[in-house]
Design a protein around this nucleic acid. Sequence first.
DNA 1: CCCGTTTCACTTTTT
DNA 2: GTGAAACGGG
Length: 867
Amino acid sequence: MSNPFDDIPFDDAHGAAPAPKPAGGGSGIAARAMGARQQPDYLTGLNPEQRRAVETTEGPVLVLAGAGTGKTRVLTTRIAHILAQGLAWPSQVLAVTFTNKAAREMKARIGLLVGGAVEGMPWLGTFHSIGVKMLRRHAEMAGLKSDFTILDTDDQIRLLKQLIQAEGLDDKRWPARQFAMMIDGWKNKGFGPADIPEGDARAFANGKGRELYTAYQNRLKTLNACDFGDLLCHPIRVLKANPDVLAEYQQKFRYILVDEYQDTNTAQYLWLRLLAQRRVSAPTSPLRGGRRSEQSEADPGGGDIGADTPTRLDTVSPTSPQGGGGNAAPPNICCVGDDDQSIYGWRGADVDNILRFEKDFPGATVVKLERNYRSTAHILGAASHLIGHNEGRLGKTLFTDAADPDDPKVNVHAAWDSEEEARAVGETIERHQRDGNNLNDMAILVRASFQMREFEDRFVTLGLNYRVIGGPRFYERMEVRDAMAYFRVVCQPADDLAFERIVNTPKRGLGDASVRLVHDYARRKGMPMLAAAAEIVATEEMKPKPRAALRGVVENFARWQERLDNTPHAELAETILEESGYTAMWQADRSAEAPGRLENLKELIRSMEEFESMRAFLEHVSLVMDAEQNEDMDAVSIMTLHAAKGLEFDTVFLPGWEEGLFPHQRALDEGGRSGLEEERRLAYVGLTRAKRNCHIWFVSNRRIHGLWQSTIPSRFLDELPTDHVDVAEPPTSYGGHGGYGQSRFDRADTFSTRRESPGWRRAQANQTEATRGNWGSRSGIAVERIGYGETDSGFGAGKGSVKGRVIEGELIAKSVADEPSAFAVGDRVFHLKFGNGNITAIEGNKLTIAFDKAGEKKVLDGFVEMV
DNA sequence: CCCGTTTCACTTTTT
DNA sequence: GTGAAACGGG
């Protein structure tokens, strides 16, 4: 990361945060250079606040790191500092992140700082991966064997479905997917079946919620499996129930660091708090010995690093920490986060965790990082003003010294529909590219993934390289999951879910009836299905044809299992796919996807080679569900706003700023005020991804669920400050309709002809009616003069003090008319996009129209006009 | 038991 | 409009 403050004078840093080893006196350049040399290299270039965050190693520390303020740098430097000062061995530092990417990046950067591999940091990883690690060591305490498998959401849902059916419930009425979400929600709070609130338990399946949850947990246990939530819940339970184990970890982890603390959920918080409550006393504990031996195992790892940082590690004994002498020492926990970037409330993240930090850890040092190294003053101004509309913030204001009058303001653009939006974004991208910018420096950040498609379509026709991040994942592809299921059964014969997935894939004549037979037999005898199948094959229970097929399967697996430990695993994997007929199945497939699928299978086997064993590979895949993208090509990135957190781009496009989409209607409905605030934080995240150029788009018409809806600009547009925002004039516009209201529709290019058409007028009228307002023109953003309760839109004075029409909750309802349709079946109508047609059916305000050219479509009545 | 057709739900975000 | 799942005929 290039830091513009790399050359900040050293004295600056000294003033606010004295170095541990004061530099020698003297003011000459040479003396200063000497002083600088004595500073550890890694501290150079940190600003005073960053430095304080790094050097305050003892006691609880909360680092409030705004977007682009060098958060990762602080975290990694802090770890490097702890290691270099000899305050702890690498194995005594617990550092948790949310994503694998963040963990990887942290490892890499610490490696750079400390010099050399950081293999000695076994406890740096995601919450989940560290949870697994703990759980594998103490699996018996959670009623599991240490080689338990980890189920993904898909398996989880299939399992729940079986259970729901087994209860004699209608799985249509009570969808497994929904129940899976409820369970996730409970586990995010650390609730076991006994802990869930009565109301929650009643909410599903006529009050059988708790019963089903219990059944699910039992089933997991017999399958020797865990779902994602268990990876945290089990460790919490183990730690609570076994004080000796807990004490072991509490003493082991001298320093705890947490990234993205604002995203922690209750379970993660509980887990952290358990580990952070250091009870350093208890020298009598019999576990001392155990701990020692454990530690000596880890020490060599630390020694490796010591080789690169000679002085400190040798002289300071890690077993006599400076801060942890007495009883109940304050924990050395350092949480880094930004309450303004908390965007995962919907999956259980609790912003309160960060807001409460000082109460949870009395005497905490709080460091605010507000100096932004990423964006222009305009972007920061826009983002800060927007986020200022949220309440209950810890309150930070980003600033930058790098203000250049040439910096572009944030641009707001309007488009007729999403198609035009994609076209215009494509043009802007090409323009930037012609100006000598890399596509890699540009990104399109959308609210919902369905928005991506239109951009993809457009870019394909333009021949513009693009890359979808967080799109359909490699490990979620059908063929990859099938192959994985084969491997899972081989490694883990009790994995019934995997077995069921592939018994009849490829088709072997083992349909529902046969699988049920095996399933019932297995349940009756309490054995895994594969074992049951082996027994059934030896009996007369099955008709000869399926029996032969099943025998084949059983024999195959027996053979593969034999070879598991004496064959190179990638080779074995290939054999399995070969002998099972799975590869042949796709080779015989004439469909268009088949070659791609075969390619994916090859890629799967190739990536397996990088692992030590098939088991190690399976573990990796279950936790690290992302596949690397090829970074070589120059391409525009398309991703969701959520996926964009932590990234930065020179130019950022933010399409779809319309009510209902952004803020998302569902967030508003289900989350109310706090839902809206989370959406606003999402907008803030989006804006602050941009270094220099930021283009916001909204459209008047968008197709949602297959039918066209008219939309209103997002309220977030109103919340942007005029001084930092420009409304882009259409390039071909022959200026001068500045004074006109409704001018945002006056896109000259494609509409000069259409503007006179009846459909256009109809749509325009419709739009005006919905959003009636005044649109500023010259100086600022197009301002829609609609009040949103108390919201300060930032446009106080001026001629535009038109009385705001408060339509709040009704904003979107506008497009779902409640009055009876003015049309009748058989009417001849005109539609701007589809031309003329006849109405064949009416359903509320949705019309089904047989268009002369476009065929039958469903359309909202606001978009057609009687001919 | 297999395969084609129809139907339905989906569209927030993900470790 | 799309994809998955259910249904019914062969």
